[in-house]
């Protein structure tokens, strides 16, 4: 299956902004995070199709996954 992966803020350093990824059925967000060389603790916000997701959310074909470090403003 294919998903779209978007990275933000410091996660872009040395990586990319947006990329298509070919993944095995049933892949979880956590596996994608680790494959990027990121640790679970570094993840601030997981967004799956514009809704908040979890590290153990299971991905499906066509999903848009966005990963953010803990950042904020106002």
């Amino acid at each position: 299956m294919k998903i779209t992966l978007k990275l933000f803020a410091t996660f872009r350093n040395g990586r990319f902004k947006i990329a298509e990824q070919e993944l095995a059925e049933g892949t979880e967000v956590r596996q994608v995070v680790l494959s990027l060389g990121l640790t679970e603790e570094e993840i601030g916000i997981v967004m799956l199709n514009g809704r908040h997701g979890e590290l153990d959310s299971t991905l499906s074909h066509g999903d848009i996954l966005s990963l953010f470090p803990l950042v904020g403003g106002g």
Partner: peptide, 21 residues
């Protein structure tokens, strides 16, 4: 992480992409 790193690096404007997503 927000006050120690996020805000000094990107300012409040880091929110554009977050709110957009």
């Amino acid at each position: 992480p927000v006050s120690g790193e996020g805000l000094p690096t990107y300012g409040t404007n880091v929110l554009v992409n977050i709110l957009n997503e």
